[in-house]
């Protein structure tokens, strides 16, 4: 190669640096998992995605906040001695909105990667299929929990503004929080599994609506009829078949301000809790199997 003296007259020279290797820090699995979790949580609310994907989640959130704001206004202005609805019951009353949010947003986290097969690119990276499924489920669970918790906190602030007894309010809030966590994991597992199996968004939404809204409606009707016919244990047993009746049953048993058609007590309480936990575990196992299968194709 010939060497020439540098041209001192020119100052701006564009260098093609060629390929540069990366010698910086490489994060471990926990940090990668956290990134996936945070990204998933943001995507559930349409953040970091297109403008129109933010419409649905925030519209639903606004709708679920509206009654809470009205309740707060009424309580503060009229000086009622107590909130007209308990924290846990508020979530129960707005279950249609929670169910719609889950049905609409689960496909974002559980269908897209499988439909477009980008799951293969994830599984060719450090995170394993179980870790991937777990993080996706945690993202949707937290998104759902926030969806339920925000109106609950609005109610709580209103109660504090109205100078209601703080001890009672905190106790009610904590009970509601525990129940909401359980409900969020349940609903996220169910809608996640449905979305990972039916990859067309429309089918996934319809499937989730069938399970969360239609099935819950049927369970509720049967529970009421059974209770009316004085078949209390039948009424309670039927409650095991829908996430919302599980939530209401546990709230009833725990005295969190939700009333079921027939009281849930005795051995039914651990049965409800066990079914809820098994349901979550089953959904998670199903998700892992599903991701593994699609990832290896």
């Amino acid at each position: 190669m010939s060497e020439s003296a540098p041209d001192l007259g020119r100052s701006g020279v564009i260098h093609d640096l060629g390929y540069r290797h990366y010698s910086g820090v490489r994060e471990g699995t926990p940090a990668i998992a956290r990134t996936l979790f945070v990204t998933g949580l943001r995507h559930a609310y349409g953040l970091g995605r297109s403008g129109k994907s933010k419409v649905m989640p925030f519209l639903l959130l606004g709708m679920s906040l509206l009654p809470a704001a009205i309740v707060v206004g009424v309580v503060v202005l009229t000086g009622l001695g107590d909130l007209p609805v308990s924290y846990a019951d508020y979530t129960n009353q707005t279950q249609l909105l929670v169910s719609l949010f889950a049905a609409a947003q689960a496909p974002v986290l559980f269908s897209r990667d499988l439909r477009h097969r980008s799951i293969v690119l994830y599984l060719a990276r450090p995170l394993s299929a179980p870790m991937f499924a777990l993080m996706r489920w945690l993202s949707l669970s937290l998104a759902l929990l926030l969806f339920m918790l925000v109106p609950t906190l609005v109610l709580f602030l209103g109660a504090l503004l109205a100078e209601l007894d703080t001890g009672d309010q905190v106790a009610g809030l904590l009970k509601a929080l525990v129940l909401q966590v359980l409900l969020a994991t349940l609903v996220a597992g169910i809608t996640g599994l449905i979305s990972s199996v039916s990859l067309r968004r429309g089918f996934a939404v319809v499937g989730s609506v069938m399970v969360l809204i239609v099935l819950t409606g049927v369970v509720s009707v049967v529970q009421n009829i059974a209770a009316f016919e004085d078949a209390d244990s039948a009424s309670v047993a039927v409650g095991l078949f829908s996430p919302w009746s599980l939530f209401a049953g546990l709230a009833d048993a725990w005295d969190a301000g939700v009333n079921t058609p027939a009281p849930v007590d005795g051995a039914w309480v651990p049965a409800y809790a066990l079914v809820a936990v098994l349901l979550v575990a089953g959904c998670l196992l199903g998700l892992v199997a599903r991701f593994r299968k699609v990832g290896s194709r």
């Binding site: 910086g24 897209r112 477009h116 690119l121 450090p126």
Partner: peptide, 23 residues
């Protein structure tokens, strides 16, 4: 094919690099 159609190549490659452990 393994690319989501509604994401730009730039965003996608950044995300995939992060999934491999880059900050």
């Amino acid at each position: 094919d393994c690319l989501p159609p509604d994401v730009s190549a730039s965003d996608f490659v950044v995300h995939m690099a992060r999934m491999s452990g880059l900050g």
